[in-house]
Design a protein around this nucleic acid. Sequence first.
DNA 1: CGAAAAGTTGACGCTTCTCAACCTGCGTGG
DNA 2: CCACGCAGGTTGAGAAGCGTCAACTTTTCG
Lengths: 193, 193
Amino acid sequence: MTPLPGLAIDSLKHWPVRFPKGHLIFDEGDVSDCIYRLQRGCVRLQVNSVHGNRQIVQFVLPGDIFGLCPERRNTAAEAVTTVMAHRFSLKSVMEEGLSSPRISLELLRNATVAYQDLAHHIEKIVHLSAVEKVRDFYVWLDQRVEAAGLPPRRRPPMPQRDIADYLGMAPETLSRCIRQLRVARENEALDAA
Amino acid sequence: MTPLPGLAIDSLKHWPVRFPKGHLIFDEGDVSDCIYRLQRGCVRLQVNSVHGNRQIVQFVLPGDIFGLCPERRNTAAEAVTTVMAHRFSLKSVMEEGLSSPRISLELLRNATVAYQDLAHHIEKIVHLSAVEKVRDFYVWLDQRVEAAGLPPRRRPPMPQRDIADYLGMAPETLSRCIRQLRVARENEALDAA
DNA sequence: CGAAAAGTTGACGCTTCTCAACCTGCGTGG
DNA sequence: CCACGCAGGTTGAGAAGCGTCAACTTTTCG
C-alpha cells in the first residue's frame, strides 16, 4: 500500500489524517504541536503579505515531511488536493526523536535541504526568464513524480494559479509560456518525423 | 567585550576564528564539520547558478548562528568584511547538544526562522517594486544594527553590489533607488522646516 | 443544466535590464 | 607628496519582457 521510501521517523507513533481539497492545515504563526509526512496528494507551503499577495515556497509531494517547527508555524500549509498524511505529535518527536541520532539527523537534513532548495528557487525566480522558469518547473515535477513511483502525470496536481504563485509570475504569463513550450515541442516532433 | 545576547549553545566548547574580507568560509557542497556564531563583521550566504549568477540569500550579522548542516553545506559563506566568529565542532554539537533540550530547541528554532525569513524575502522580491525593496532593506538593516547594540551605521557594512544580489536587482537600479529615496527624504525634511 | 471558477488570448504601457560612458574614493608606487 | 590605476558607484539612453486590464472560452461542480 505504501510505495514510499521508509524513513527513520516512521518508527515513531503516528496517526493517519485526511484533509479535503483547499483545507487550511495550519496557518503561519499557529502554535505548532505536530509534524506530518505526506502519503497521498499535494500540499502547498506559503506565506501571505499584507497586500494579500500569496507566495508559495514549496510544493509538498508524497514522502515529504512538513510542519517541523518547535514553537510556531513558519509558513501556512494548505491542501492542494485531497490529502492523506501521517501526523506525528511534536512532543513525542522532540522527546523520543532527539534521543535517536538517526531521527534527529533525518529531521535536520530535511530542514537544511528545504533551505537549500528555497535558496536555489530564489536564484531561478530572479535570473531565469518566464519560459525557462516554467520549463524548469515541469522538469522538476516529472522527476519528483517518477522518483515517487507514481504513474506519470497527465496534468499537474496543482492548478496554474498555484504554479504562477510559486514561480512568481502572473497566471496570464504562465499560460502563454505553457502554450509556447507546447508549440516548441510539437515543432521538434515534426522535425524528427 | 561581548555585547551579544547569550545563547544556550555558548556553553559548548568553541574556538575563536578570524577571516579576512572576501574569504570563502565554506562553499556549497563542502563536507560540514563545524558551525559558527558570528561575533564581529558580516557574512553573506549565497548560491551560484551555472551561468555565474550569484544570489545572496542571507546576511549574517553579529549574534547570528550560521553553517548548521548535518552533512554538506547547503549554501556558500563568504566574509563581507573582516570577520570574528566562534567555531563549534559539529561532532560535539551533535553529541552533547542534542542531549540538551535547550540547545537542540535553539538550533531547531534557528533553522525554522531562517526558512521563514527566506520565504518572506521571496515574497518581497516578487511583489515589491525596486524602491520598496530598497526601503525595506534599509529598515531591516537599521533594526538589526540597533538590536545588536552596535553604533548606528553611516554606511552599510556590505557593498551595493551585494545588496543588489540580495534584492535580486541590477546594481544600476539599486543606485537609482538609493538616490530616489535620498531625494525624497530631503524633500520631507524641507517640508518639515 | 446553469453558474462560478479556471484558463486563454489580445492590446498596451511601464518598470527594470542592458550597455556604455563617466565619476569618485582609495590604496599603491614612484 | 603627488600621480596613477583600479574597483566600486553613478548617470543616461534605449530596448523589451512581463504585468495589467479586459473580453472571451473552457471546465468544473452542484
